[in-house]
Design a protein around this nucleic acid. Sequence first.
DNA 1: GTGAAAGCGCTAACAA
DNA 2: TTGTTAGCGCTTTCAC
Lengths: 348, 348
Amino acid sequence: MVSLDDVAKRAQVSPSTVSRALSHPEMVAKATRERILQAVEELGYQPNQVARSLRKRSSRTLGLIITDILNPFHATLAKGVQDAAEKHDYTVFFFNTDEEPEKERRALYSLRGHLPQGLLIVPTAKARENLKLMKNLPIVELDRSSGTPGVRTVMVDNIGGARKAVQHLIELGHQRIGMIVGRLDISTAVERHQGYREALAAAGIPYCETLVLPGNHREEDGRKAALALLSLPPEERPTALFVGNNEMTIGAVLAIRELGLRIPEDISIVGFDDSRWAATTHPALTVVAQPTYELGYLACESLISSLSQETSLPPNIRLEVSFIVRESTAPPGGFSNGLKGKRRKAAK
Amino acid sequence: MVSLDDVAKRAQVSPSTVSRALSHPEMVAKATRERILQAVEELGYQPNQVARSLRKRSSRTLGLIITDILNPFHATLAKGVQDAAEKHDYTVFFFNTDEEPEKERRALYSLRGHLPQGLLIVPTAKARENLKLMKNLPIVELDRSSGTPGVRTVMVDNIGGARKAVQHLIELGHQRIGMIVGRLDISTAVERHQGYREALAAAGIPYCETLVLPGNHREEDGRKAALALLSLPPEERPTALFVGNNEMTIGAVLAIRELGLRIPEDISIVGFDDSRWAATTHPALTVVAQPTYELGYLACESLISSLSQETSLPPNIRLEVSFIVRESTAPPGGFSNGLKGKRRKAAK
DNA sequence: GTGAAAGCGCTAACAA
DNA sequence: TTGTTAGCGCTTTCAC
């Protein structure tokens, strides 16, 4: 590889002058600078970032840790982060934890050795413990918060979004509204659950524990939870479902199909997080839509701006969600009011 | 940060001994080694990978460049790569090119400065040019090939997969089979197109240019192409569609819905690459399924094994695809045989 | 089996 | 404005 010394020789200056010409052009006389730039060009010289990092103790790299790259929500987050990082000429180390704290720990450890300038992370349930590894590293948490002190966060208004969703169902006339919530050791799940409770309370509907089932954010968890909720005895069974994330929503819809129930005639459903699947499935789903790409992009902007001390962005950001009414919600209908012919088929 | 020198002092040995104890344990006496390891433990020492990389001129990092992280196929590829990399204790620099050669060039350039050990890339159409930047870097191309000499590849049997898909349609009785193909400067598109031609030829069906439309791999391209193909005059109009990738397949299905046509009664459709969307949409799609995760995983294994000279894996790997018949294909029916009531609605 | 010394490629005092 | 020098944290000869 061609090094700075090679350039120096060719341009007949000292290595430090070459370094300056590239890093602080204004400190070098115009003529010299041009001679150097030409040599750089001719030799195809590219600075060795590794050497530069070692010397400057700062690396122009960031870490990105998400929990599930197969989830389009996370993939979109990653794209937002990546785009912002590239814009500022940062390179990103990427990790995927599968929601497993142990994988997260290993990712953090491995990342630490590479001395990144900062970290963007969708924390797992044990992140608060794991992040102790990263003393003194600027961190932004995306989507959810681990509660680690001193960490920046970029999240959406989960409470408001959930409240709106449930309110919508209540306005349609639903009284028994089930919720498939995420793990309650994850902040988004807690907040969406809170929004659910608030909406019920505001309408004077008592909170009923049997109608709330937790899941581990995956499609299969949503499916199982929906199956369980819809197997309750008729008088307890929910007439509508509010599901805490995109993957579980898909699972819930599949469960409803398995049971031979119709959406929205037999059961209404609202999901949290929009997706192509939600928009194009039949019937199209009513959802709380999040500005996912912006979330990732902004988180990265926030991190980078905090690195350069231009603390233009507040350390904790909440983005607004929007509520999209499509075809999966309607006033309570047949199924809830007794056993229709459909149901027989369902009890497979 | 605690450095090797700190450990050396605490263990009362020289820095070089500490280095050896960690990198070549067998070169250090057991007692010394244990003392050192204890000091490492007590101080929470972690080797500085940047310094190590600079010195060894080798970095335990890999580059991963894909073209569209929002495409579940690519996200799955990335997960496979990531998992394999982690297994071998490599860290990955991640880039997304959006199919844009210019972004790819920038990604490669930026990556190069970080001295990765190797590169995994889904090449864009201009990769052959761009990859000239990466002289001497071990490279594995995934999914498609840029034709760059000396580069390893891990791909699927595109020709065979396409042939099987089209053959299936022919066996159902279709004669006018349209194809929505990718960009013909991308190897997968060329190969799938070839499979299409071969299947037609084998059945003695003449190849018809008007039935083949290219698209840029995105959903919207598939939609437009399908719209165009289905707007052909009745006697030229295809009765079945073979679509060259997952995203365009979704677009084609949406187009068919827009036109008010029924799948498979009015038009059959087969996609290349399975996905949750394909499996759960209604009707579920017949597809050529690829071992996507394995593709990514194996590509990374292949790269890493080539780095350590254990050339156990062949430089060019082709994985088998499988053909999954679901509900989107049937013998040619109503639509193709003339104008049904449905069609009026379609001509919006 | 261990230590001393050199140096990976770069940047940043400090001097001139 | 430019050059000299030292050193980031590590590994690897080369001695002993």
